[in-house]
Simulated assay, not measured.
Amino acid sequence: MSFLKSLFAKKQALPTRTLNNASELQLNDIFTFGDSFALPQAMRKMQLQVTDINTLEFKHEHYIQVIGQGSGSQLVYLSFPNNPQKLIKFSLLLTRDDVEALFDMDDFSEIFEAPGNARLKPLTNNHNYADMIADEYIQQNFMTTGYFHKQDYRDSTPPQYTEDNHGQEFEYYSLQGGQEKRFVEIFIFENGETDVYLSFLRPENEIAELWAKE
């Protein structure tokens, strides 16, 4: 009889996963930006789905990079480096045309010259990303070594020193402006591929809604 009872008993519903903050996002989860004028038009009111989660590793810290994509081709990058206010770093990947439109290329080339004391002033404020651009940037990082992992290591330590799976090594350069909350970040990988990001630190509440994928 106990066997029959267990056979026909209703299955207990599995607990529904809830999201309390953006740092808990998983693959296929959805998040929506608010309509704050502090956000560039490329982000405002945008609904995105998480398509990838990577890990950026430096000597003294590592943190995840969440990649979200909406209905178009625009990707938005969220990362969670240590900072006292627990602000989220929102980033957009710049094309070469973006870089040339925003900065004097002779000044930009100084970023890669030792000892790394470049200063950049944007050439224009008439740009789609104008709301996240500082008036001036001062270089902070020069040839800092890091590792890029196409895996989520938020709850564990990346295998930096194992030969088989140490991640993709890169040189990191960064410039900072706008009360230390706006950045130009450059990653040069082993194969010569170069990524340039425009980034800024914003509060968690810029993300208006979070939905966990069932």
Rank of each mutant, 00 (worst) to 15 (best):
S2D: 13
K5Q: 08
K5H: 02
L7W: 14
L7Q: 06
L7Y: 05
F8P: 09
A9P: 06
A9E: 13
A9T: 15
Q12V: 15
A13Q: 02
A13T: 00
A13D: 00
L14P: 04
T16F: 14
T16P: 01
R17I: 02
T18N: 08
N20V: 09
N21P: 07
N21M: 13
S23F: 09
L25D: 13
L27A: 04
I30R: 01
F31P: 06
T32D: 12
G34V: 11
D35S: 13
S36W: 01
A38C: 14
Q41E: 06
A42C: 12
A42N: 13
A42S: 14
R44N: 10
Q47D: 07
Q47A: 10
Q47W: 07
V50N: 12
N54W: 14
T55A: 08
L56R: 07
F58T: 00
F58V: 00
H60C: 03
E61S: 04
H62G: 09
H62N: 06
Y63E: 00
Y63S: 06
Q65W: 03
G70W: 07
Q74T: 07
Q74E: 13
Y77R: 00
L78P: 08
F80L: 12
N82W: 11
Q85M: 05
L87T: 00
L87F: 15
I88R: 08
I88Q: 01
L92W: 09
L94A: 04
L94Q: 01
D97R: 07
D97M: 01
D97V: 00
V99F: 09
L102W: 03
F103I: 09
M105L: 12
D106Y: 06
D106E: 14
D107Q: 13
D107F: 10
F108D: 05
E110A: 14
E110T: 14
F112A: 08
P115L: 09
R119P: 06
L120C: 05
P122Y: 11
L123C: 10
T124Y: 05
N126M: 11
N128Y: 15
N128F: 15
N128E: 15
A130D: 10
A130W: 02
A130I: 01
D131P: 13
D131C: 10
M132N: 02
A134M: 01
D135L: 02
D135A: 05
Y137R: 12
Q139S: 07
F142Q: 02
T144K: 10
T145M: 14
G146L: 07
G146Q: 05
K150M: 13
Y153R: 03
S156N: 10
T157P: 08
P158C: 09
Y161G: 10
N165R: 15
H166C: 15
G167H: 08
Q168A: 13
Q168T: 15
F170N: 03
E171R: 07
E171F: 10
Y172C: 05
Y172N: 06
L175P: 04
L175K: 11
L175S: 04
G177V: 05
R182L: 03
V184R: 00
E185C: 04
E185I: 06
I186T: 04
I186P: 00
F187H: 14
I188H: 00
I188K: 00
F189W: 01
G192D: 03
E193D: 11
T194Q: 10
T194M: 02
Y197L: 11
S199T: 08
F200R: 06
F200E: 10
L201N: 04
E206A: 11
L210Y: 03
W211G: 11
A212D: 01
A212H: 01
E214N: 11
